[in-house]
Design a protein around this nucleic acid. Structure first.
Lengths: 209, 209, 209, 209
DNA sequence: TTTTAACCGAGACGGTACGTCTTGTCTTATA
DNA sequence: TATAAGACAAGACGTACCGTCTCGGTTAAAA
């Protein structure tokens, strides 16, 4: 007794072509210049084929994001064993990306898409689509006793990524040291060891207290 | 030889009608259902009158935001003298607002507008358009010695507001205690006094002090 | 008589289902709301099965027409022995049909189909698909010496049916007496007997000639 | 006290461009290959400008027809003083037009348009859009006593034009003499004078007069 | 007081993109 | 192996807005 439906199955070639076309146009022109007609044309596909499988433009973009097509070189968090350095490197890379016009458009496009689509929003919440997310890196740090075992991993991640998004929306230029200051601000009070703690303010502000 | 221009001066009535219509439609339908033609019709104004003074839809919205028309009941940060409690109250209010459909749409609409318009983005960066911003409250706390005098006020504010925006984009339900956990996570390590520090983290952050 | 022969046994059933579905939808919704997908769905048949046997929508309709499925109650010309009365009855019936919305749509749908398909056009030329056509009735009249033996039977038929089509296209309301006047106008000068000739104009114009 | 409305007035240039583009494409490609998008493109006009003033494709065609743009060389009925000859010439011209592919398409396109639009149908009813219609020519003949004063002018016209339409739909080749036979068939019994009556029928219609 | 230029409302304009619909072909699982 | 179910590319449909331009009418400062 089968429940198999009749008829042809979804064309994988069409799906791939649509997602690739979407990724290409998204990166090239930004989210709001992205059109269904443009995607269909670029993919060599009928518009209806897109609408058959995705309800909206933002859903296609979400699928792209999920498939990792929007960040060819993933913005992963490195893991050198030093959490603070790793986070600074990671945020620094992101801020550097945001300095370039293309990167800024990409980020704001992503936020715009998240605005329209819950999946994109969720994905963004998971650290810019990276599968090895901030949370993962923080938990690794806990395992290595770099962080207190009860450190609010989730909240620290949200604060860092949220700050990045907020800065992207503000279009403020990222002064050098922003990444460092942000990491230190958020990480303060959660380090388990003195060595990895920032000497930042404390050392200078109250050197002899 | 004068440089006075001829003709009537800008109609203040038209400007007010436009901004009020924009605020009304923005709150009622959200940013992406907001249209120039709709604003013109609602305000009883010609389209050209809008385009004469604002370059785009997002600019009108930015002006609304600046004029405080989008948040009739300002989301201000209270100042009871207890920073932690105040921040938790403030964030709690915002998360509560986000729980309601209208509030969620409003917030996401605001982010969408920020996506298109730098002014809106900047305004968002300044703590959700509130004139008494997070930064202000934090500096007040420094003056009262609730916070270390060198606490990275700017970064703490960014982290908190950013986290709110990120959660709004993620559409995740705000579990009770989110505000508290977030404030504690970010504030950890910056308190100057024992009393205002969260019990959980504080005990372990400086176990031997 | 057995059904043991091999081959596509279902074929004939599908064909019948297609024609019936076509006839049904044609009558219900008119020619231009008739779609291949609608026919396939109604008939419980794959679209390709239709395309296998008919090149186009109009061809299916032509086949329906040929099979007499579009006029369940055929509009036949009666034969009471009095040609004039019979033609007036026949035309009167048609005009009455045209007065009803459904009948009007049906007729215009038929003309629309004829526009696209030569077979439908030919069928229309043969007196609205009726197998006992006008021409047949006229020839019967000749045999009974109601009409002159050389009366241009073909042309009289074309004139009558053509006038009906023209009136259907014009959407003019059929005033009472239209059928009578039309028959008399076209039949004038072809009657072999005085008795069957219309007294209409002749009686008044040349009453004693 | 005026009732003049404000705002820009309808652009005559756009209207003319649309009608001309429609006429051109109609003649070139036929009614069913005529598209709104094609008209807009050809006229250099936005689609909405067409939809603002005409509800449908067929309405634009009706307007073209009304404006005489579809028959550059009007198919007028000549008036040489001899009704029979004039009608035969006229019908002969039309049948000749129908022999050419372009002419056939034009005529069937017109019928298709009439199928969808009452105005086109009415226009067709008035003798193929000619302003000097059949009826006019027949009434002139009555004034010259070529026709009985009570001849059913309207019905004779309908019969002739209707026959033309029917033949166009049938796609039957127009054998030589069709025009003559048709005119004689319909005109029989309405002539007031012997001279203009066809020799064939006349002799037998009133053999004893 | 008259002129005159910028303002105003209204809305038509050329366009872009939308999401839906239909066509005719192609593909696959089922019977 | 023919069939139903249905996915596919193509493209027309009618709608919604865009941002610009044009129309008369209305101010209000400059002449």
């Amino acid at each position: 007794m089968s429940e198999h439906r009749q008829g042809p199955v979804r064309s994988e070639a069409a799906k791939i072509a649509i997602l690739q076309a979407t990724a290409h146009l998204f990166q090239a022109r930004g989210y709001d210049h992205l059109t269904m007609e443009g995607i269909a044309a670029e993919a060599g596909v009928g518009k209806q084929t897109i609408y058959r499988w995705w309800p909206s433009k933002s859903a296609v973009v979400a699928d792209c994001l999920l498939g990792g097509l929007l960040f060819p070189d993933r913005i992963n968090i490195p893991d050198t064993g030093n959490l603070r350095e790793d986070l600074i490197t990671w945020l620094g890379n992101i801020f550097e990306l945001l300095q370039q016009p293309a990167g800024e458009v990409l980020m704001r496009s992503l936020i715009a898409a998240a605005t329209e689509n819950a999946d994109v929003g969720l994905r963004l919440h998971e650290s810019l689509g990276s599968s090895s997310s901030v949370t993962g890196r923080l938990q690794a740090a806990i395992r290595l006793s770099e962080l207190h075992s009860v450190a609010p991993v989730e909240e620290i991640g949200e604060a860092l990524v949220g700050a990045v998004i907020l800065r992207a929306l503000s279009r403020l230029p990222a002064h050098p040291g922003v990444a460092e200051r942000l990491v230190d601000a958020v990480l303060a009070g959660h380090s388990a060891t003195r060595a990895t703690m920032p000497p930042v303010g404390a050392a200078r502000v109250l050197p002899h207290s």
